[in-house]
Design a protein around this nucleic acid. Structure first.
Length: 293
DNA sequence: TGCAGTGTTGCTTC
DNA sequence: CGAAGCAACACTGC
């Protein structure tokens, strides 16, 4: 599940690997992932332009091209990008995509590759997406920023100051769990990190945002930075499908504190981690460490 | 075996 | 207007 740490790592890898390259061909078996354009427009407009930069806005990856164009990629639930080489076989109406190289790229996630961007030096950039929710848009850079800013993007979770966080929290009557996952309020946090952030800050997920004390907001602010930076450093979370650009799994799943640990003992006090529904999503927390309502 | 759970976003409905 | 529900899709686990 790509949240900020996974998208940030992908962005950093792309920055090292594809700037100054050209995309010379595109293969896909799922053109429906392209929004606002036909496959033909998408292909014809993108090919043979030089890649000039890679950015992250919230959970979006933006690849810019010479001439003021940009490609937006949102990985949604199960998308990830891979660099490698693949061969494609057509079997009736189905395509079989298999990696030519060995190692992490033989991972089963290779079975879900739906886009391949062929680079001018022989390497290939692939999009794997088990559930096919990812979104791709090619347009002028300006229009792409409008698109990425659909949310009236909240401040990036890595950049938001205590003052800014405090100001938006005080305006919200929602519970803090829902608030943290609202991309218009603060950008980059999803279910995995929201649960762990609130555990570290020792705040109950159902606490009303505008009821939090300055001390609690401080703890949340510190936890956001520490957890997202640490998770980024160790390669993100690969509990289900996320892989880095070389196909390797991230380490945060092994050190997570409460996410998907319901029924298991809290690492701090030993109480059993609870699971409740908030906003129709699972929320996990320690009933002892995060008891105050 | 069938069905709930998984989680991001955007569209529809109220 | 904001909030809530649900669809997009495929696989896992009970």
């Amino acid at each position: 599940m790509p949240e900020l740490p996974e998208v940030e790592n992908t962005k950093k890898s792309l920055e090292k690997l594809i700037i100054n390259n050209y995309i010379i061909n595109i293969w896909t078996d799922t053109p429906s992932l392209i929004r606002k354009n036909s496959l033909e427009e998408f292909r014809n407009n993108m090919l043979n332009r030089k890649i000039t930069s890679v950015k992250r806005i919230a959970k979006n990856i933006i690849i810019t091209f010479d001439g003021g164009y940009a490609l937006l990629i949102h990985l949604k639930m199960t998308g990830h990008l891979l660099i490698g080489n693949w061969s494609i076989q057509k079997n009736k109406n189905k395509y079989l995509v298999t990696p030519k190289s060995m190692g992490a790229l033989t991972d089963k996630m290779n079975g879900y590759i739906h886009f391949i961007f062929y680079l001018d030096d022989g390497r290939e950039l692939a999009l794997s997406d088990l559930r096919k929710f990812a979104k791709l848009i090619f347009n002028t850079e300006e229009n792409i920023y409008k698109e990425a800013g659909i949310y009236n993007a909240g401040k990036d979770a890595l950049l938001i100051t205590l003052k800014e966080l405090s100001a938006v929290i005080k305006l919200s009557s929602k519970n803090i769990k829902t608030f943290l996952m609202d991309q218009t309020k603060i950008a980059g946090i999803g279910n995995i990190y929201a649960d762990d952030i609130l555990f570290k800050a020792q705040v109950h997920p159902l606490r009303k945002a505008n009821s939090l004390s300055l001390d609690e907001i401080k703890k949340i602010h510190i936890s956001i930075k520490e957890i997202l930076l640490f998770a980024t450093k160790i390669g993100g979370t690969s509990i289900s499908d996320y892989r880095d650009i070389k196909g390797e799994k991230g380490g945060y799943g092994d050190v997570r504190m409460v996410y998907r640990r319901d029924g298991k003992p809290c690492y701090v006090c030993g109480s059993l981690i609870k699971r409740i529904k908030i906003n129709n999503r699972s929320a996990r927390f320690c009933p002892t460490c995060q008891s105050r309502l």
